[in-house]
Design a protein around this nucleic acid. Structure first.
Lengths: 343, 343
DNA sequence: AACGTTTACGTAAACGTTTAGGATAGGGGG
DNA sequence: CCCCCTATCCTAAACGTTTACGTAAACGTT
């Protein structure tokens, strides 16, 4: 690899001059500049990023910390992060924590050593990730949290409005004429609670206060969805439509209905939330899409604003809006058929 | 951030000694070592990776170049890459090319500047990616190709055996009693051609030479699958089972059958290849799984072997075996019903 | 003609490491 | 008692940049 010294010699100038023409940091006479440019081309010179980083104390790298790229939500966020970073001249280091405390520990050390200029942490559920964020932050590294809990109050955050998610899901069903809805919630999850609240808010427009039926799952899993689906199928009084706290639940739920001889959307209209599994169902599940890609973009924009100092002071939280994407799991219903609520 | 100098002063030794105890590069008397270790702890010292990289000409970073993390195949490969890298003390930079020549160009410059120690390139279809690989390689950066074409003969490669994929798919159907199969191939794709060849090889055991029906798609897309599904449904003579060149095709195909009133697996047994969409179909699609995660692991192992010089000389290609994962899209059939081949 | 300004570039220190090549001190053999 | 060896640590150069500062030449002004 040619160094700046080689270029300087080749062009017959000092290294300071080479640096100047490369970075445009000061005026260089036209003919001199040309000599340098030519020399660079001849030698195929590429500035050494390590050396530059060392001198400038800026690595031009950011880290994206996430639980696992295998989870369908994260690749989209990662891509948003990478796109925004790329556009701004940053490279991104991926760090899969796998929710493993040991990995998390090693990664925070690694990131400190690497002198990354900033990090975006997505969906930090664990205490150890919380600690990681704090540690990095204390070391002066800007941190923005993507889709994290309210407890991370020292950081910039970019979120999707969970209440709005529930609201949209319910509204979509109401607009299709469904009067009494059910909801599948998840025990001890604030996310789920917010989504339920959104459902309630939508219902209030119709005068109702609560969903006609609330089933409780113990986790956002397909198995739990299936379990509740079996339960549901055996009931006499059934709402004509359900909202699931997330798509996984919806998939399991729908599977159970299918096994019980009930079909969607004929016997039940169903809408999911997060739109990760929409393609997994026939007919396609209607679901509320979380703009993961856009959240990634926004997170990095926030981060860059912190890194270049154009944004200072108290933490900001940006909220993006979800949107409903229609599948074929919801059926229009006339005002009359709403009244009769058994399949 | 504390530097090595601060530690040296704090411990009352020279920086060389500090470096020695940190890296264990030479003997240091026990009491001295303790003083250093304590000083490190007191100051919370972390070695600066940039400085180290500069001196050692080794960044301890590798890059993973891929078309797009949004494509379902790649996250698994990425995770394999990251796991192996992490275990070996390397960080990984993700580079989504989006098959965009401009991005590719900028990324190759970036990687050269960053002095990454090695790169793994996955699924390089394009000419410009081919060039990228060559450029990096010429600059002395070890490159291993994950799942690339045979034309990339200067590089270590890790592949899945496409012929084997076809073979497994067909064998699975044969074992279920299906005598005459069909195949959905993709025009001008060597991957598809190999898979077809595998199907043929499996058929030869039964005395047949060719699938009873070969449909031709113009791309690995759901739309093409749908188009061929419509075609298929209108035929009089139908095989009892089909193999699709990939899962996307299978999904589209199955969609079309469904719309034509044919159901899987009752009227047709179907198996896909690559297992990316298995969950997208009800009933679940039986498919040949490509071990993307393991391929990622293996790629990085190869890469590391090159980087530390333990592996030299002529390029190696490692082939991993695919495996069938059973869904519910294949039905057992008696020898008799095989004879009657219309639905 | 002497001097101040401007223009264009060079010198050298610094960033935080690693590492080759001393240097110092203590100890054993003759 | 001298010499040499070993054990232990230090000095200083080097990695490839950026940048504060310095300097030389050219020019205009009086």
């Amino acid at each position: 690899m040619a160094t700046i010294k080689d270029v300087a010699k080749e062009a017959g100038v000092s290294i300071a001059t080479v640096s100047a023409v490369i970075n445009g940091t000061r005026f260089v006479a036209k003919p001199t500049k040309k000599r340098v440019v030519d020399a660079v081309a001849r030698l195929g010179y590429q500035p050494n990023r390590m050396a530059r980083a060392l001198k400038q104390k800026k690595s031009h790298m950011i880290a994206h910390i996430l639980p696992s790229v295998m989870n369908p939500f994260f690749p989209a966020a990662l891509k948003g992060v990478e796109d925004a970073a790329f556009a701004a001249g940053y490279s991104v280091l991926v760090c899969n924590t796998e929710a493993n405390p040991e990995r998390i520990q090693r990664y925070t050390d690694l990131l400190l050593e690497t002198q990354v200029d900033g990090v975006v942490i997505t969906a930090p559920g664990l205490r150890s990730i919380h600690d990681m964020a704090e540690t990095l932050h204390r070391s002066g590294i800007p941190v923005v949290v993507l889709s994290g809990p309210r407890s991370l109050k020292n950081f910039d955050r970019v979120l999707v409005d969970d209440v709005q998610c529930g609201y949209l899901a319910a509204q979509h069903l109401l607009e299709a004429g469904h009067g009494n809805l059910g909801f599948i919630q998840v025990a001890r999850s604030t996310t789920s609670k917010h989504r339920l609240q959104g459902v309630c808010e939508a219902l209030q427009v119709k005068g109702a206060k609560q969903p006609a039926l609330v089933l409780e799952a113990h986790g956002f899993t397909e198995q739990e969805g299936y379990r509740l689906g079996v339960d549901f199928a055996s009931r006499h009084e059934k709402p004509t439509a359900m909202v699931a706290s997330n798509d996984m639940l919806a998939v399991g739920f729908s599977e159970a209905l299918h096994d019980s001889g009930l079909t969607i959307p004929k016997h039940l209209s169903l809408v999911g939330i997060d739109n990760t599994m929409a393609a997994s169902l026939r007919p396609r599940l209607s679901s509320v899409a979380i703009p993961a890609y856009d959240m990634g973009l926004e997170a990095v924009r926030r981060l860059i604003a912190r890194m270049d100092g154009s944004q200072q002071g108290t933490p900001l939280t940006t909220t993006l809006n979800p949107s409903i994407v229609e599948g074929h799991s919801v059926v229009e219903v006339s005002v009359h058929s709403v009244a009769q609520n058994h399949a």
